[in-house]
């Protein structure tokens, strides 16, 4: 399927919309009618053709516009991209993984020629043609993580592994669900997860960390996480909370279907070979309730899930002001029929 890139916005007039084909491939995160935190990690093996799991990194119709939004965020706040000095090897590891994967999986869009350390990268959708020397920072216009990070959908962080811990020592984060890279840089796995309710006590993070520390080269894993966002806004950072916080009070029974978006993160975890670091990719998908209910199974399930949430999660995800309005609107689409297991459409 040849991709046609949309020209759309994630701020101000919010022209972002999914095409019908994109709706079908949305990674709906709820595998049953209720939700709670768990160590939901599975091997990141290639999924069905056309699905968001088909390739190592998913590129879709929003690619070009998302990259434009990222450039705007970085222009306003360079602190959204940071790397501590000891992460340079990991940065190159990330650049290699991203370029090799994209060129292999999307040969019509990206090409990579390698002759020893002499690399030639062509990104057709963004009109980039770059020759550089692998390992030489000065041969690129940005440091390697920022260079590829500006050319791939999703946020990324790099974790150094030492003393039986993972340390978030680098990242390029411009479309996050309300956490600050600038604040979290240098923290370990338990520390950056500190604000998450219930999961520490349930042992989720202890088990997840133990698993990640033993991750092997070439054996990536993935998991899904979700929240809700008002308007298709990518930059819901704490930095800009005074700009988007008000949106939460604008939801009415009339506009809820259009305004409230389910925001799903397809998270990938990769052991990087030379640095022994772990790459964490956070690929976000946004879909309005209106579009979600076009898939009957999702329309039935989502209100049930929203009703099942523990209060701590409602508070943490910032749903309190509009959750009931969303449930009331969604329930029209729930005929009470049983739903099939798994997240995919029937």
């Amino acid at each position: 399927m040849a991709l046609i890139f949309k020209d759309e916005t994630f701020r101000d007039d919010f022209t972002y919309k999914n095409s019908p084909a994109t709706i079908r491939r949305f990674p709906f995160p709820f595998i049953e009618d209720q939700y709670r935190y768990s160590v939901n990690i599975e091997p990141h093996t290639p999924g069905p053709k056309g699905s968001v799991y088909e390739f190592t990194f998913d590129i879709d119709e929003h690619y070009v516009s998302e990259m434009r939004d990222r450039a705007m965020v970085l222009q306003e706040d360079p602190g959204r991209c940071q790397a501590l000095p000891h992460m340079m090897t990991a940065q190159w590891d990330m650049l290699e993984l991203v370029m090799v994967s994209l060129a292999r999986d999307y040969p019509d869009l990206f090409t990579l020629h390698r002759d020893g350390a002499h690399w030639h990268w062509i990104n057709k959708p963004l009109n980039i043609d770059q020759k550089f020397t692998f390992g030489e920072v000065n041969s690129l216009p940005y440091e390697p993580m920022e260079y590829v990070g500006r050319q791939i959908q999703g946020d990324f962080s790099l974790q150094d592994q030492r003393d039986g811990q993972l340390w978030m020592d680098a990242g390029i984060i411009t479309s996050q669900a309300d956490w600050s890279l600038d604040f979290d840089v240098g923290m370990n796995f338990f520390e950056w997860h500190a604000p998450v309710p219930l999961a520490h006590e349930a042992g989720v993070f202890e088990r997840a960390l133990k698993f990640l520390l033993n991750m092997q080269i070439g054996q990536p894993v993935r998991r899904l996480n979700w929240t809700m966002t008002i308007n298709p806004r990518l930059d819901t950072s704490p930095e800009n909370y005074p700009k988007w916080g008000k949106d939460r009070t604008t939801v009415t029974p009339e506009n809820v279907g259009e305004k409230v978006h389910l925001r799903v993160e397809l998270q990938g975890l990769f052991r990087l070979p030379r640095s022994n670091a772990i790459l964490f990719s956070i690929r976000g998908y946004l879909m309005s309730l209106e579009q979600i209910v076009t898939v009957p199974k999702w329309g039935r399930r989502l209100p049930r899930v929203l009703k099942s949430l523990p209060p701590e999660l409602i508070e943490y995800k910032g749903l309190a002001r509009y959750r009931q309005t969303a449930i009331d609107w969604l329930e029209k689409y729930d005929d009470g029929a049983p739903t099939s297991p798994g997240g995919g459409p029937d």
Partner: peptide
């Protein structure tokens, strides 16, 4: 097997 590192130098 694939390489596994339980004895990495501390980059800091």
């Amino acid at each position: 097997s694939q390489p596994l590192n339980l004895f990495p130098p501390v980059r800091l």
